[in-house]
Design a protein around this nucleic acid. Structure first.
Length: 423
RNA sequence: GGAAAAGUACUCAAGCGGCUGAAGAAGCGCCCUUGGAAAGGGUGUAGACCAUUCACGUGGUGCGAGGGUUCAAAUCCCUCCUUUUCCGCCA
């Protein structure tokens, strides 16, 4: 969440940055409440002080065998007043907190204005869209024809937007995620984690999914827990409430997890194939960095994610998201989009974001600086490295052959038991 | 899921409702001793957050979390969380 002091002191700047998102937020109300809070607080703290000093007289009097009832009576009134004011203060604090939770992060200055992906800025393009000298198939047709994906039976046991991977399809999925994890741990310096796939409410608030987007999440009522929509949630909250030493930073984590999303509001979109599922696999990259380093950490994170596509020799491009497309908690996001032949277009396969101190404030992630021993919020970043299901789909489509078979990308062949082709 | 015990500062640990805005130990800082170190002696030592102040400072909060009782809570009551042990179930 935003620092309330920053909202007060840089009111104009914060408002203008938020306008890049194309929506208006009522910051004045927060400031008004904060004014109220301060006013009541200073009075109640004065009374509290009086209460503490005076109540010391009671045991003194009692020790001397004197009657203390008049002081006790007086204290009783004072105590009630303090209690009332304290609860007023905490009521206002709760309100402020609730309002702050609803305000998204301020976009980076470089963020283009705009309200759809058409306003995103093209950063770079790698490779050319794949060309074919035959009629191509979409990955869902390839999958069924090769008997490596079964959508119908998935519907039977779970419903729409689920899939069953089988045979070499299951093997391919596993190969892809192992390849990604190996690349990031062995070449890019990430430490592997297997986190819980369900988290509590606090964790979901910490990264910004709650309270605003509860409808998009799968909820387990009996435990009031949520199926994770991304490994970002458990990983980013890993050090919640802690104060890390500066020499621990930066911390790089990578994790494979399934991700669960209701995809509410996307009815009718991408209904076929692996693109938009209620459950999909993803390898996530998460970084904790010092504030002054987060900008360059985002660039290297992006390169780490790109490297997967480079090694798989899949054509892609990178865009910077405009204000309207930017995620709630993010200050700056690059999307990597892979060439998807059946779409005849690029499709998002990774989102790499710098959240700066926004999530750190929510999740209470801090570190102690070595030079002056002061405590400060650290910065969090994350990116998909990559979405596994979409990567599998992209491989299937880009590597398809005229006879309906699929060539296995070279770097995956060791993971596929040496197999060079799926047919 | 059932039963029991426990959660106090970086760590260990004491704590009869007011003398605990938290004993003691260890650790760490500084000083003495020493040629230098160790040992020994002395001495200092919550962290974080909030308010206020130009600042030194002052005030508030804090004993797993949140409520409650009381003039007053680490201490009494309730709920929850975590850890350990035992039982049950289970990959």
């Amino acid at each position: 969440m935003l620092d309330i002091r920053r909202i007060r002191e840089d009111y104009e700047e914060v408002s203008q940055l938020l306008q890049l998102r194309g929506l208006n937020y009522d910051l004045k109300k927060i400031i008004d409440l904060d004014d109220q809070r301060k006013e009541i607080l200073s009075v109640s703290e004065g009374l509290r002080h009086e209460q503490k000093v005076k109540s010391k007289e009671i045991p003194e009097l009692k020790k001397q065998g004197k009657d203390a009832s008049h002081i006790i009576e007086e204290m009783s009134k004072l105590s009630q007043k303090v209690k009332d004011m304290t609860s007023d203060v905490s009521e206002i604090e709760d309100k402020i907190y609730e309002l702050l939770l609803e305000i998204p992060n301020t976009p980076d200055l470089s963020t283009p204005k705009g309200d759809s992906d058409e306003d995103n800025i093209l950063i770079k393009t790698e490779g050319e869209p794949t060309t074919f000298d035959f009629d191509i198939k979409a990955h869902w047709d390839l999958g069924e024809d090769l008997d490596i994906i079964d959508f119908e039976r998935a519907g039977k046991i779970a419903g729409a937007r689920f899939s069953v991977m089988k045979n070499l399809g299951a093997r391919l999925e596993r190969s892809v995620l192992n390849f990604m994890l190996d690349l990031h741990t062995e070449n890019h310096g990430y430490n592997e984690v297997i986190p819980p796939f369900m988290v509590n409410r606090d964790a979901m608030i910490g990264t910004g999914q709650l309270p605003k987007f509860e409808n998009d999440m799968f909820h387990v009522p009996s435990k009031d827990m949520f199926l994770i929509p991304t490994a970002e949630v458990p990983l980013t909250n890993l050090y919640g409430g802690e104060i890390l030493d500066e020499d621990m930073l930066p911390i790089y984590h990578t994790a494979y997890t399934p991700c669960f999303r209701k995809e509410a509001g996307s009815a009718g979109r991408d209904t076929r194939g692996l693109i938009r599922q209620h459950q999909f696999n993803k390898v996530e990259l998460v970084k904790f960095s010092k504030p002054e380093d987060s900008e360059k950490e985002l660039e290297s994170l992006l390169l780490n994610a790109e490297e997967v596509l480079k090694q798989l020799k899949l054509p892609y491009r990178v865009v910077q998201l405009c204000g309207g497309d930017l995620g709630f908690s993010s200050a700056k996001t690059y999307d990597i989009e892979v060439w998807m032949p059946s779409y005849d277009d690029y499709l998002e396969i990774s989102s790499c974001s710098n959240f700066r101190d926004y999530q750190a404030r929510r999740a209470n992630l801090r570190y102690r600086r070595a030079d002056d021993n002061n405590v400060d919020y650290l910065h969090t970043l994350n990116g998909s490295g990559l979405a596994v299901g979409r990567t599998v789909a992209a491989i299937m489509e880009n590597y398809q052959n005229a006879d309906g078979s699929i060539t296995v990308p070279e770097v995956l062949q060791p993971y596929m038991g040496g197999k060079k082709i799926i047919k």
